[in-house]
Protein backbone atom coordinates (compact mmCIF):
# COMPACT_ATOMS: atom_id res chain seq x y z
CA UNK A 1 0.00 0.00 0.00
CA UNK A 2 3.04 2.19 0.43
CA UNK A 3 3.55 2.95 -3.24
CA UNK A 4 -0.16 3.47 -3.57
CA UNK A 5 -0.34 6.25 -1.03
CA UNK A 6 2.58 8.22 -2.30
CA UNK A 7 1.28 8.01 -5.84
CA UNK A 8 -1.95 9.54 -4.65
CA UNK A 9 0.09 12.31 -3.13
CA UNK A 10 1.40 13.35 -6.49
CA UNK A 11 3.61 10.42 -7.35
CA UNK A 12 6.91 12.22 -7.71
CA UNK A 13 8.94 10.31 -5.14
CA UNK A 14 12.36 9.35 -6.42
CA UNK A 15 14.33 6.20 -5.83
CA UNK A 16 14.80 2.78 -7.37
CA UNK A 17 11.77 1.66 -9.30
CA UNK A 18 10.90 -1.88 -10.15
CA UNK A 19 8.62 -2.86 -13.02
CA UNK A 20 5.56 -3.81 -10.99
CA UNK A 21 5.32 -0.64 -8.88
CA UNK A 22 5.85 1.40 -12.01
CA UNK A 23 2.79 -0.18 -13.59
CA UNK A 24 0.78 0.35 -10.44
CA UNK A 25 1.99 3.92 -10.36
CA UNK A 26 0.90 4.41 -13.94
CA UNK A 27 -2.45 2.85 -13.27
CA UNK A 28 -3.06 5.10 -10.31
CA UNK A 29 -1.61 8.26 -11.80
CA UNK A 30 -4.19 10.93 -12.43
CA UNK A 31 -2.44 12.11 -15.56
CA UNK A 32 -2.43 8.68 -17.19
CA UNK A 33 -6.01 7.94 -16.20
CA UNK A 34 -7.24 11.32 -17.36
CA UNK A 35 -5.54 11.03 -20.73
CA UNK A 36 -6.70 7.44 -21.22
CA UNK A 37 -10.27 8.40 -20.45
CA UNK A 38 -10.37 11.40 -22.74
CA UNK A 39 -8.40 9.72 -25.55
CA UNK A 40 -11.34 8.27 -27.57
CA UNK A 41 -12.92 11.70 -27.93
CA UNK A 42 -9.58 13.42 -28.40
CA UNK A 43 -8.71 10.91 -31.11
CA UNK A 44 -12.03 11.49 -32.85
CA UNK A 45 -11.48 15.23 -32.84
CA UNK A 46 -7.89 14.75 -34.02
CA UNK A 47 -8.94 12.58 -36.98
CA UNK A 48 -12.09 14.44 -37.99
CA UNK A 49 -11.28 18.02 -37.02
CA UNK A 50 -7.53 18.59 -36.76
CA UNK A 51 -6.55 16.42 -39.72
CA UNK A 52 -9.15 17.97 -42.06
CA UNK A 53 -8.17 21.49 -41.01
CA UNK A 54 -4.50 20.70 -41.68
CA UNK A 55 -5.47 19.19 -45.05
CA UNK A 56 -7.47 22.28 -45.95
CA UNK A 57 -4.46 24.42 -45.07
CA UNK A 58 -2.11 22.22 -47.12
CA UNK A 59 -4.43 22.13 -50.13
CA UNK A 60 -4.51 25.89 -50.22
CA UNK A 61 -0.85 25.75 -51.32
CA UNK A 62 -1.44 23.13 -54.04
CA UNK A 63 -2.32 23.43 -57.71
CA UNK A 64 -5.65 22.46 -59.16
CA UNK A 65 -5.60 19.96 -62.00
CA UNK A 66 -8.65 18.75 -63.84
CA UNK A 67 -10.49 16.56 -61.28
CA UNK A 68 -7.28 16.13 -59.30
CA UNK A 69 -5.08 18.15 -57.02
CA UNK A 70 -1.45 18.50 -57.98
CA UNK A 71 0.72 18.47 -54.86
CA UNK A 72 3.13 21.18 -55.95
CA UNK A 73 3.76 24.15 -53.72
CA UNK A 74 2.33 27.38 -55.07
CA UNK A 75 1.11 30.72 -53.74
CA UNK A 76 -1.15 31.24 -56.76
CA UNK A 77 -4.34 30.54 -54.84
CA UNK A 78 -3.50 33.21 -52.30
CA UNK A 79 -2.46 35.69 -54.97
CA UNK A 80 -5.62 34.98 -56.94
CA UNK A 81 -7.85 35.34 -53.90
CA UNK A 82 -6.22 38.42 -52.45
CA UNK A 83 -6.28 40.25 -55.79
CA UNK A 84 -9.86 39.15 -56.49
CA UNK A 85 -12.20 42.15 -56.20
CA UNK A 86 -15.12 39.79 -55.54
CA UNK A 87 -13.37 38.32 -52.52
CA UNK A 88 -12.51 41.76 -51.20
CA UNK A 89 -16.10 42.96 -51.61
CA UNK A 90 -17.63 39.86 -50.02
CA UNK A 91 -15.17 39.83 -47.13
CA UNK A 92 -15.89 43.48 -46.46
CA UNK A 93 -19.61 42.85 -46.57
CA UNK A 94 -19.30 39.80 -44.29
CA UNK A 95 -17.30 41.77 -41.72
CA UNK A 96 -19.77 44.65 -41.89
CA UNK A 97 -22.85 42.40 -41.59
CA UNK A 98 -21.32 40.34 -38.78
CA UNK A 99 -20.28 43.50 -36.98
CA UNK A 100 -23.80 44.92 -37.23
CA UNK A 101 -25.36 41.62 -36.16
CA UNK A 102 -23.03 41.39 -33.17
CA UNK A 103 -23.75 44.98 -32.13
CA UNK A 104 -27.51 44.59 -32.53
CA UNK A 105 -27.64 41.20 -30.83
CA UNK A 106 -25.50 42.12 -27.84
CA UNK A 107 -27.20 45.50 -27.28
CA UNK A 108 -30.70 44.02 -27.39
CA UNK A 109 -29.68 40.95 -25.39
CA UNK A 110 -28.10 42.82 -22.50
CA UNK A 111 -31.36 44.19 -21.04
CA UNK A 112 -32.89 40.71 -21.26
CA UNK A 113 -29.97 39.13 -19.44
CA UNK A 114 -30.14 41.94 -16.87
CA UNK A 115 -33.87 41.47 -16.39
CA UNK A 116 -33.41 37.72 -15.96
CA UNK A 117 -30.61 38.06 -13.47
CA UNK A 118 -31.91 40.97 -11.35
CA UNK A 119 -35.69 41.03 -11.69
CA UNK A 120 -36.90 37.47 -12.20
CA UNK A 121 -37.56 35.41 -9.07
CA UNK A 122 -34.90 32.69 -8.65
CA UNK A 123 -37.49 29.92 -8.89
CA UNK A 124 -38.62 31.18 -12.31
CA UNK A 125 -35.17 31.72 -13.85
CA UNK A 126 -34.79 28.22 -15.27
CA UNK A 127 -38.21 28.54 -16.91
CA UNK A 128 -37.29 31.87 -18.53
CA UNK A 129 -34.02 30.47 -19.85
CA UNK A 130 -35.90 27.51 -21.27
CA UNK A 131 -38.38 29.86 -22.98
CA UNK A 132 -35.53 31.83 -24.53
CA UNK A 133 -33.68 28.78 -25.84
CA UNK A 134 -36.68 26.98 -27.40
CA UNK A 135 -36.85 29.01 -30.64
CA UNK A 136 -33.12 28.48 -31.07
CA UNK A 137 -33.55 24.71 -31.20
CA UNK A 138 -36.30 24.70 -33.81
CA UNK A 139 -35.61 24.25 -37.50
CA UNK A 140 -33.09 26.91 -38.51
CA UNK A 141 -34.00 26.83 -42.21
CA UNK A 142 -37.69 27.28 -41.55
CA UNK A 143 -37.08 30.10 -39.08
CA UNK A 144 -34.95 31.93 -41.64
CA UNK A 145 -37.50 31.30 -44.36
CA UNK A 146 -40.28 32.69 -42.18
CA UNK A 147 -38.44 35.99 -41.91
CA UNK A 148 -38.66 36.08 -45.67
CA UNK A 149 -42.40 35.47 -45.33
CA UNK A 150 -42.66 38.23 -42.72
CA UNK A 151 -40.62 40.78 -44.67
CA UNK A 152 -41.49 39.77 -48.24
CA UNK A 153 -43.31 41.71 -50.99
CA UNK A 154 -46.63 40.07 -50.09
CA UNK A 155 -45.39 39.30 -46.61
CA UNK A 156 -46.89 39.67 -43.18
CA UNK A 157 -45.68 43.22 -42.59
CA UNK A 158 -46.73 44.49 -45.99
CA UNK A 159 -50.14 42.83 -46.08
CA UNK A 160 -50.73 43.89 -42.47
CA UNK A 161 -49.93 47.52 -43.22
CA UNK A 162 -52.10 47.39 -46.34
CA UNK A 163 -55.05 45.98 -44.38
CA UNK A 164 -54.68 48.84 -41.95
CA UNK A 165 -54.65 51.26 -44.86
CA UNK A 166 -51.28 52.71 -43.90
CA UNK A 167 -49.68 51.98 -47.28
CA UNK A 168 -51.03 51.54 -50.83
CA UNK A 169 -48.10 49.70 -52.32
CA UNK A 170 -45.99 47.03 -50.59
CA UNK A 171 -42.75 48.38 -49.16
CA UNK A 172 -39.85 46.98 -51.13
CA UNK A 173 -36.99 47.93 -48.86
CA UNK A 174 -37.84 45.22 -46.31
CA UNK A 175 -36.32 42.24 -48.05
CA UNK A 176 -33.25 41.36 -50.11
CA UNK A 177 -30.90 43.77 -48.40
CA UNK A 178 -28.29 43.90 -45.67
CA UNK A 179 -30.78 45.05 -43.02
CA UNK A 180 -32.98 42.01 -43.46
CA UNK A 181 -29.92 39.75 -43.22
CA UNK A 182 -28.91 41.52 -40.01
CA UNK A 183 -32.41 41.17 -38.53
CA UNK A 184 -32.61 37.46 -39.37
CA UNK A 185 -29.16 36.66 -38.02
CA UNK A 186 -29.79 38.67 -34.83
CA UNK A 187 -32.88 36.56 -34.30
CA UNK A 188 -30.94 33.32 -34.84
CA UNK A 189 -28.09 34.17 -32.50
CA UNK A 190 -30.04 35.85 -29.66
CA UNK A 191 -29.57 33.04 -27.09
CA UNK A 192 -25.83 32.97 -27.80
CA UNK A 193 -25.65 36.57 -26.61
CA UNK A 194 -28.12 36.35 -23.73
CA UNK A 195 -26.66 33.32 -21.96
CA UNK A 196 -23.01 34.40 -21.49
CA UNK A 197 -24.09 37.87 -20.29
CA UNK A 198 -26.62 36.31 -17.93
CA UNK A 199 -23.97 33.98 -16.48
CA UNK A 200 -21.62 36.94 -15.89
CA UNK A 201 -24.38 38.98 -14.22
CA UNK A 202 -25.32 36.04 -11.98
CA UNK A 203 -21.75 35.92 -10.65
CA UNK A 204 -21.82 39.52 -9.44
CA UNK A 205 -21.87 39.77 -5.66
CA UNK A 206 -25.03 41.74 -4.87
CA UNK A 207 -23.34 43.25 -1.79
CA UNK A 208 -21.09 45.25 -4.13
CA UNK A 209 -24.13 46.99 -5.61
CA UNK A 210 -25.50 47.84 -2.18
CA UNK A 211 -22.09 49.13 -1.19
CA UNK A 212 -22.07 51.38 -4.25
CA UNK A 213 -25.42 52.87 -3.34
CA UNK A 214 -24.58 53.15 0.37
CA UNK A 215 -21.56 55.21 -0.63
CA UNK A 216 -23.86 57.68 -2.31
CA UNK A 217 -23.77 56.60 -5.96
CA UNK A 218 -27.01 56.82 -7.89
CA UNK A 219 -28.48 53.63 -9.32
CA UNK A 220 -27.33 54.63 -12.77
CA UNK A 221 -23.78 55.34 -11.64
CA UNK A 222 -23.67 52.07 -9.70
CA UNK A 223 -24.68 50.28 -12.88
CA UNK A 224 -22.06 52.14 -14.90
CA UNK A 225 -19.20 51.76 -12.46
CA UNK A 226 -19.89 48.40 -10.82
CA UNK A 227 -22.36 46.22 -12.72
CA UNK A 228 -21.20 46.91 -16.28
CA UNK A 229 -17.45 46.39 -15.73
CA UNK A 230 -18.17 43.16 -13.87
CA UNK A 231 -20.47 42.00 -16.67
CA UNK A 232 -17.89 42.72 -19.36
CA UNK A 233 -16.39 39.20 -19.51
CA UNK A 234 -19.86 37.96 -20.42
CA UNK A 235 -20.32 40.70 -22.99
CA UNK A 236 -16.95 39.89 -24.55
CA UNK A 237 -17.81 36.19 -24.72
CA UNK A 238 -21.17 37.09 -26.29
CA UNK A 239 -19.49 39.27 -28.92
CA UNK A 240 -17.10 36.52 -30.00
CA UNK A 241 -19.69 33.75 -29.88
CA UNK A 242 -21.99 35.76 -32.16
CA UNK A 243 -19.37 37.33 -34.43
CA UNK A 244 -17.39 34.22 -35.38
CA UNK A 245 -20.22 31.92 -36.55
CA UNK A 246 -22.25 34.67 -38.25
CA UNK A 247 -19.38 35.59 -40.54
CA UNK A 248 -19.51 32.04 -41.90
CA UNK A 249 -23.28 31.88 -42.26
CA UNK A 250 -24.42 30.39 -45.54
CA UNK A 251 -28.18 30.00 -45.30
CA UNK A 252 -29.30 33.52 -44.44
CA UNK A 253 -27.56 35.36 -47.31
CA UNK A 254 -28.82 32.64 -49.64
CA UNK A 255 -32.46 32.80 -48.56
CA UNK A 256 -32.96 36.32 -47.24
CA UNK A 257 -30.53 37.96 -49.64
CA UNK A 258 -32.15 36.04 -52.49
CA UNK A 259 -28.68 34.96 -53.62
CA UNK A 260 -27.93 38.55 -54.61
CA UNK A 261 -26.10 39.50 -51.45
CA UNK A 262 -23.61 36.65 -51.00
CA UNK A 263 -21.22 36.54 -48.08
CA UNK A 264 -17.90 34.81 -47.75
CA UNK A 265 -19.39 31.35 -46.97
CA UNK A 266 -21.28 31.46 -50.27
CA UNK A 267 -18.01 32.25 -52.02
CA UNK A 268 -16.26 29.28 -50.40
CA UNK A 269 -19.10 27.04 -51.53
CA UNK A 270 -19.01 28.45 -55.05
CA UNK A 271 -15.24 27.97 -55.40
CA UNK A 272 -15.31 24.47 -53.88
CA UNK A 273 -18.37 22.99 -55.57
CA UNK A 274 -19.55 25.13 -58.49
CA UNK A 275 -16.05 25.85 -59.80
CA UNK A 276 -14.75 22.58 -58.36
CA UNK A 277 -11.44 24.23 -57.53
CA UNK A 278 -10.59 22.78 -54.11
CA UNK A 279 -7.21 24.54 -53.66
CA UNK A 280 -8.71 27.94 -54.46
CA UNK A 281 -11.69 27.27 -52.16
CA UNK A 282 -9.29 26.19 -49.43
CA UNK A 283 -7.31 29.40 -49.80
CA UNK A 284 -10.50 31.48 -49.47
CA UNK A 285 -11.42 29.52 -46.33
CA UNK A 286 -7.94 29.89 -44.80
CA UNK A 287 -7.76 33.63 -45.49
CA UNK A 288 -11.27 34.16 -44.07
CA UNK A 289 -10.42 32.22 -40.92
CA UNK A 290 -7.20 34.20 -40.53
CA UNK A 291 -9.07 37.50 -40.84
CA UNK A 292 -11.70 36.38 -38.30
CA UNK A 293 -8.94 35.25 -35.93
CA UNK A 294 -7.08 38.58 -36.24
CA UNK A 295 -10.26 40.60 -35.63
CA UNK A 296 -11.13 38.44 -32.60
CA UNK A 297 -7.65 38.72 -31.11
CA UNK A 298 -7.65 42.50 -31.64
CA UNK A 299 -11.00 42.72 -29.92
CA UNK A 300 -9.73 40.65 -26.97
CA UNK A 301 -6.60 42.78 -26.74
CA UNK A 302 -8.62 46.00 -26.67
CA UNK A 303 -10.74 44.64 -23.84
CA UNK A 304 -8.08 42.86 -21.84
CA UNK A 305 -8.41 45.18 -18.85
CA UNK A 306 -11.88 43.75 -18.21
CA UNK A 307 -10.60 40.20 -18.33
CA UNK A 308 -7.72 40.76 -15.95
CA UNK A 309 -8.21 39.23 -12.53
CA UNK A 310 -10.55 36.62 -13.95
CA UNK A 311 -9.95 33.08 -12.88
Amino acid sequence: MDSDTDVRNGGDSTGPQRAAPLLTRLRHSEAVNGWLLISPTALYALLLLAAPLVTLFTFSFFKDGYLTIIPEFTLENYQATLSDPIFAALMQRSLWVSGLVTLATVLTAFPIAYYLSFHVAPALKARWLFLITIPFWTSYLIRVFLWKVILGYNGVVNSGLKELGLIDKPLEFLLYNVNSIVLTLSHSYAPFAILPIYVALEKIDRALLEAGQDLGESRLMTFWRVTLPLAMPGVIAAVLIVFIPTIGDYVTPQLIGGGKIPMVANLIQARMLDMDNKPLGSAVAVISMAIVAVVSILFLALNRRFLRGQK
Binding site: G34, I38, A42, I241, I244, G248, I268, A285, M289
Partner: peptide
Protein backbone atom coordinates in the same frame (compact mmCIF):
# COMPACT_ATOMS: atom_id res chain seq x y z
CA UNK B 1 -12.60 13.38 -12.10
CA UNK B 2 -8.94 13.84 -13.05
CA UNK B 3 -6.36 16.56 -13.11
CA UNK B 4 -3.85 16.06 -15.88
CA UNK B 5 -1.42 18.22 -17.84
CA UNK B 6 -2.85 19.59 -21.07
CA UNK B 7 -6.46 19.13 -19.92
CA UNK B 8 -7.52 22.68 -20.76
CA UNK B 9 -6.00 22.38 -24.21
CA UNK B 10 -7.52 19.06 -25.16
CA UNK B 11 -10.97 19.92 -23.77
CA UNK B 12 -10.83 23.30 -25.53
CA UNK B 13 -9.96 21.56 -28.77
CA UNK B 14 -12.87 19.12 -28.46
CA UNK B 15 -15.16 22.11 -27.78
CA UNK B 16 -13.83 24.02 -30.82
CA UNK B 17 -16.73 23.14 -33.19
CA UNK B 18 -18.96 25.28 -30.93
CA UNK B 19 -17.35 28.46 -32.25
CA UNK B 20 -15.90 27.33 -35.57
CA UNK B 21 -18.14 28.37 -38.49
CA UNK B 22 -19.85 25.22 -39.75
CA UNK B 23 -18.87 25.99 -43.31
CA UNK B 24 -15.20 25.51 -42.33
CA UNK B 25 -15.93 22.17 -40.63
CA UNK B 26 -17.91 21.06 -43.69
CA UNK B 27 -15.46 21.99 -46.42
CA UNK B 28 -12.43 20.63 -44.58
CA UNK B 29 -14.20 17.30 -44.01
Amino acid sequence: RFRFPGKGGVVGFIMLPLVLPEIIVSVSL
